[in-house]
Design a protein around this nucleic acid. Structure first.
Lengths: 209, 209, 209, 209
DNA sequence: AATGAATGAGGATTCATTCAT
DNA sequence: TATGAATGAATCCTCATTCAT
C-alpha cells in the first residue's frame, strides 16, 4: 500500500480517536489498530504522538477554514458573506463530526501540546468574522458609528462561540439534526439585527424598572 | 489540620490542576503536591481520581449555577433577568478562572468520566436561558409569534455558546479584562435585538443580490 | 473497656480476617474495623501485623492441641486414644472453622512469617499421632513387627493429612456437616485396619495381574 | 526470542514465585525478573496477575491430572489402578515440587481469585479416587455392602488428603526423599485394608474398655 | 513497505505504620 | 484508654517509543 494512502488512513484513525478520548487519553495502540497498521509504521510515518496530533489539527483546521473562507464571495454584501460562511461552517462540522469534536473539545486546554495551534485556528476564524463585521460597518457607510477594534473582536468572539455551540448541539442530535441552512438562519436571526443596530449606533441598555 | 479544611485545599488544588491539564493528563502527584498534602491523604479523603474530579465538578457547577440563578430577580422583566444573569455569569467566571477553565474545557469530551455531569451542568444553564427567552416571549404578549420549543432551545444554545466564548476571551486577557458588566452588555447588544425581532415575528432572511 | 477484653476481640477479628484472606491479603484496616477498635490501638496492643499473626497462631494452635491431647485418656488402649483424639479434633475444627481455616490454609507457605510456627504445630500433632501408633505397636507386643521411626512418621503424616482433609470437607458443607463422631469413624474405618495389619507385619503388595 | 518460549519461561517463573510466596505476596516484579524479561512484556503476554495465576494453575493442574489419569490402566483391578495412580501422583509431585506447592498451598483460601479453579482441580482428583473406590466395590461383587455416595466421597477425601500430606512430607526431605513407589506403598498399606473391610461390610467400632 | 519483540518511565492505588493529642 | 491525621514505600498496570529483521 502506497505511503500516501496509509498516511491518510492513519490521520483518519487518529482524528477519530483523539475526538473520542482527548489527546492524553488517546493511545497510540488504539490509533494504530483502527488504522489497520502496526505501531512502528505509525511512528515511521508520523514520528510521535505529538506530531501526529499536530498533523491532525493542521489537516482539519485547514479543511474547515477553506470551507468557510471559500464559501464567502467577496463580491457579496457583508451579511450575505456572513450567512454563507456560517452555512459552510455548519455544513462542514456536520459532515465531519469527529474532526469538529477534536478541534472544539480541547480548544482551550493550555497544557496540551498544540493548544497553540488550536488557539490559532480559532483566532483565524474569529478574525475572519471580525473582518466581516468591520466590512458590514463600512457598507453602512457611517464612519461615525465605527466600532473600535476591541469591540469588534468581542462581537466576533460571541458570534463564533454561538456558532460552535450550535454546531455541537446540531451534532448531538445525530438522528434529526437540522440542516446547516436552518442552523445558520437561527444564528443570523439572533445576531444580525443586533449587529446592525450597533453599526447604526444603537445600543441595548438596561431599563431601570 | 481539621479534615474539612484539608479537603477544601485539595479540591482547590485539584480544580487548578484539572483546569491546567485536563482530566487524564492531570496527575494525582501534582494535585497532592499543590494541595500540600501526601497522596495517601488525598485518597483517604477523596477515594479516587474519578471521584475527586466528580467532587470538583459538583462543587464548581453548583457555585456557578447558584451565582447565575440567584442574580435574576423573578420580579424583573425578561431582558433584565437575562442581563443580570449574564453579568453574574461573567463576574463568576472572571473571579474563578480555573473553575471555569475546568468546566468549559472538557464539556464535550465523551470518553472521560463525568462528561455526563458536565453535560448536565451545561443543560441546566441552557434550560435557564431558554426559560428566560420563553418568558420574554410571554411578556411580549403575542401568542401568535410564539416560538416552538425546538427553536427556543437552539437560541438558548447559541446564547450560552456566545457567553462561554466571551468568558474565555475575557479570561485570556488577564491584564485588562473588561468588567463583567461590559461583557454582558456586549452580549445583550448582539443578541437582544434579534431575539426581540424574533418574538415579534420578524426574521432575518437572505437577500438575493 | 479493659485491655484483656479488647485484646481478645482483636485476636478474634484477626483470626476471622486471616482465615478469609490469607496473611498477606489481610489488611490491618479490616481487622481493626471488625474488632471495633482504631488501628493505633491494635498497634499499641499487638505491635505489628506479624506479631498479631503470631499471636493468633499461638492461641489457636494451643487451643487445638489442648483439645486433642486432653481428649486421649493415657489409660486407654491405643486405638481408643486415637479415636478419642480424632473425635476431639473434628469437634474442635467444626466449632472453630475460622481458626481451622487460618491454621490449615497456609500451613505450607514458606515465605510468610510464622510458617515455621505453623509447621511446628503440625509437627506436634504428627508426633502425637506417631506416639499413638508406636504405642499401638507396643500394645501388640510383637517386637518383631516393630516399624522403624521413619515409617511411623510417614503413617502419621498420612493420617494427619487425611484428618485435615476431612475437617475441611466437613466444614464446607456448613448446612449438613456430619457430626465429629461420624467423621472420626470414617477415618478409623479407613486406616485402623491397615495400621493393625502393618503392626502385625502384613503389608499390602501389588498383585501382578 | 519467540513468544511461545518466552511465555513458557514466564509461566515457569510465576509457578516458582507463587509457590514460594503465595498469590498475594508474590510480586510481578519478582516474577518478571526471574523470567528474565521486563514487566511490560509479562503483561503483554499474560495480561494481569490474576490471569497469569490462572494460566499457571491451569497448566499445572492439567499436567498433574494427566499424569495420574493416564497412569491407571482401565483393564486393571481397582487396587492396582489406585496403586498406579498414587505412584504417578507421588512421582509427579516429587518431580515438580513448586507446582505442587503452588497447587496445594492455597487450595482452600476463599478470597483469592481462582480459589475456585483450585477447588475444582481438587474435586476432579477426589472424583477420580471416588470412582476407583466405587469400582473396587463392584469388583467385590457384593451389592449388599455397597457404600452410599456420601460415604464414598468422605473416603476419597480422606485418601486424597493423606496423599497430599505425604507428598508434602516427601518434598520437605529434599535430600533423602523416599521414592514415589515407597510413598505410594505406605499409603496403600494404611488404607487398602480398611477400604476392603468396608467393602466387605466390616466396620471399625470403638470397644468399650 | 512492514512488523514481532521489547522496555524505561510514570501513574493510580493501597498498606503497614506512626505521631500528636 | 483511645484516636484523627498523616505518610514512605510498594504494587499493579499502561504507554510512548525503539530495535532487529
Amino acid at each position: 500500500m502506497p505511503r500516501a494512502v496509509r498516511e491518510r488512513q492513519m490521520l483518519d484513525a487518529a482524528v477519530e480517536v483523539f475526538a473520542r478520548r482527548g489527546y492524553s487519553a488517546a493511545s497510540m495502540d488504539e490509533i494504530a489498530e483502527l488504522a489497520g497498521a502496526s505501531k512502528p509504521l505509525v511512528y515511521l510515518y508520523l514520528n510521535s504522538k505529538e506530531e501526529l496530533y499536530g498533523a491532525c489539527i493542521r489537516r482539519e483546521s485547514r479543511a474547515l477554514l477553506d470551507a468557510v473562507q471559500s464559501a464567502a464571495d467577496p463580491e457579496d454584501s457583508a451579511d450575505r458573506r456572513l450567512w454563507c460562511g456560517l452555512r459552510a461552517f455548519f455544513a462542514h462540522t456536520a459532515a465531519h463530526p469527529s474532526a469538529w469534536a477534536m478541534l472544539s473539545c480541547q480548544a482551550r486546554i493550555h497544557g496540551e501540546p498544540f493548544a497553540q495551534a488550536l488557539a490559532e485556528l480559532r483566532q483565524e476564524i474569529v478574525d475572519f468574522v471580525a473582518q466581516l463585521i468591520a466590512a458590514a460597518g463600512r457598507d453602512q457607510e457611517r464612519a461615525g458609528a465605527a466600532l473600535d477594534a476591541e469591540e469588534v473582536s468581542g462581537l466576533a468572539h460571541a458570534l463564533v462561540g454561538a456558532a460552535e455551540s450550535l454546531a455541537g448541539w446540531a451534532n448531538t442530535r445525530a438522528d434529526a439534526a437540522p440542516p446547516a441552512k436552518e442552523t445558520a438562519a437561527t444564528l443570523m436571526n439572533v445576531t444580525w439585527a443586533g449587529l446592525e443596530n450597533l453599526l447604526n449606533g444603537q445600543r441595548w441598555a438596561p431599563v431601570r424598572p
